[in-house]
Design a protein around this nucleic acid. Sequence first.
RNA 1: GGCGUCGUGGCCAAGUGGUAAGGCAAGGGUCUGCAAAAUCCUCAUCGCGGGUUCGAAUCUCGCCGACGCCUCCA
Length: 465
Amino acid sequence: MLKIYNTLARKTEEFQTLEPNLVKMYVCGVTVYNDAHVGHAMSALVFDIIRRYLEYRGYTVKHVMNYTDVDDKIINRAKQLKEDPLKLSQRYIEDYAKDLASLNVLPATSNPQVSKTMPLIIKFIEGLIEKGNAYAATNGDVYFSVTSDADYGRLSGRKLDDMQAGSRVEVEEAKTHPMDFALWKAAKEGEISWDSPWGHGRPGWHIECSAMNLAELGEQIDIHGGGNDLIFPHHENEIAQSECYSGKEFSRYWVHNGMLQLGGEKMSKSLGNIISIKEFLSKREADVMRMLVLNGTYRSPLLFNDDTLDAAQKNVERLKSALRPASASASGLNPESISAVASTAESAKANFIEAMDSDFNTAGAIAALFELSKIINNARDSGANDQQLKSAQGIFRELANVLGLKLEEKQGSADSDAFINLLIETRAEVRKQKLWALSDQIRDKLKELNVTIEDSKDGTTWRWG
RNA sequence: GGCGUCGUGGCCAAGUGGUAAGGCAAGGGUCUGCAAAAUCCUCAUCGCGGGUUCGAAUCUCGCCGACGCCUCCA
């Protein structure tokens, strides 16, 4: 039985879908005006892992991730670059999709964009006005009236009275309540805008997600995800809009990932402590980022530094070792040992599922993978042949794939491989003559070229990395 | 000031009532010409102080500390 921590209930609950075997999952994507950073990667990886596991458990997952392509920051950036804002955002949408693909994140089922959802957004706002939950102000903006929603604040646990509106931001005079938030913003001179019953303007940040949810998944969804920094005000406001509009419970489960920490602080643009996904991938492979996420708890802060990354990299290397072939001189394992391997492999798989069922306990799942890798490596060391390793390695690969780990050995070109093989052969001759200094020199020089040599009693193997 | 999360070995970290998973690092073996990889062994009583209980890292109270949100934010 799968259990998920629900931010709304503030506890772990049994997972039950609205429709049998179908999961409707909406995850807040990014505002596209700059390179995405590793904090975005964390969030994308968390929900990719959740999605993969749900599919592994037999669900069909409709996974929607939006792109916010109409926004102040985009408009400002476009001005700076003297570029059309929609062209700019489209550029970064394509860019982000590439980043995610290189992180081995499965593409979402759909990626709606604000700029392409305008008619529905306007209809949505009209509906809220009709129901008395929103009002058009004298300044051309349309605001949501928080006092019209008795439940407002129940996700973030805030009461209107407790919110010190205006303490950090100037309160817009046109609002009837300081906490009212914009559904529609009147266009300023020269800004990109859309026509509406309230004049030219563009949507506020929160309404887009409510509208895109409705367009892609309907009035009710199973899982709504995003970073925990979105709980308030973004998700709070989404709930208010969607539930006032439909009169139904919006999302059954609210799932939030913790923030990636760089130097003890949240990585964010305002703090300027940013590492882009591209920058990361120029130094480390995608599995390392994923392993970093897997080793922790998705809801907790994630420490991102050289120490945790080095450890994650070692973890990845170690898991890769389980997939290596049997030694050439393998004599085969006796039937008892083989059945012991098989039964331990099954128990590792059961541990894996038990951990993942428990609110996606990936750290526990990883432990099960290490357990399995140990069994496999032990069997290999004891002389198991490839045929005998096959079953356990199959389970291993299956589980690694659920987590989205590729565990690929690095590849070289056929040409370079041929040269390296030649060097290895030459070195074998040199070793026969016990010319150790020369032999070690070849090994060291190859290491500098990122080729690792391993000698064993039945010959020498090598690999990239 | 309000809301919330958290504090487990040198580091990352799992674990919500019965005597602490896993990984990294470290030390010691096996293997190796030497390495590397793999493997085996060693390595904590859970921030501090009370309480509940036969029994608590796990429940409760207090204190200390960290982090997030309350403004754009994954």
